[in-house]
Nucleic acid binder design. Structure first.
Lengths: 119, 119
DNA sequence: GCCTTTGTCAACCAACTGGTTGAATAACGT
DNA sequence: ACGTTATTCAACCAGTTGGTTGACAAAGGC
């Protein structure tokens, strides 16, 4: 219990934490800066960051009095690999191939800002 | 809150539910048969199944007195797509492309039968 | 030295989770 | 009609989660 996948998926289950990961996609950030756009307390964000750290999704390194947060995509990739087993049923076709090529051409991930409203 | 991704990721965060999904990879199953390998009560499994249903990861159809559970990979794929954005850092290269082509050549997914710890 | 900034810790709280049990519902076999 | 099988419902419980606040420690600036 509480293996890698448990930690990764339950860390990803929270929208605040997903938003944080999206922010870190742009650049490494200090804890205070991560907290800035949110309405909740700094302590709450600090907790979220330690959950993300425990899941291996980010790493934190203290330099001076500032603690820098850095995205660690490896843990996410493990979870992604687990999920991909389920996808094979439907996606092995030219459509997927085309989308793959499209993704290759996109160099900056501007369309990533938490796409929750597109239901 | 509690949007699609919240539901999908938190459903996937539980090892029992991931095991259930893996079982359903093989074939559609009745609730009782899903419950059989687990040590917990049937009611607990029933709850897990409704969580998976609410997340869209499976569908349930009642035929006679038996409720059949069927894998629905679409919801998982949504989550997978979200995650893949984070992979771009490391995988955008010929390696990924090559693996994609390899997958294309495999016509039957026979190598899927044992990728988890499910006994 | 002193004040400010950065971040965590500890205690607390309400809400949710994952399990239990026992009763209820619904369809089947005979 | 009756007992059996399949599944859910309702109430309950312990433990976890996601937030709060106030106190604290550590590093920097002046």
């Amino acid at each position: 219990m509480t293996d890698r996948l448990d930690l990764a998926f339950s860390a990803l289950a929270d929208p605040t934490r997903r938003a944080i990961l999206t922010m870190l996609l742009e650049d490494d950030m200090a804890v205070t800066d991560v907290a800035e756009p949110f309405q909740m307390s700094l302590a709450a964000i600090s907790k979220h960051l330690s959950i993300l750290t425990r899941a291996g999704l980010i790493s934190q390194e203290k330099r001076g009095r500032v603690k820098w947060c850095k995205l660690e995509p490896t843990a996410m990739k493990d979870a992604s690999v687990w999920m991909e087993s389920f996808g094979q049923f439907e996606v092995v076709n030219l459509d997927a191939f085309e989308r793959f090529l499209d993704d290759e051409l996109v160099d900056s991930p501007d369309n990533l800002t938490e796409q929750t409203d597109q239901a």
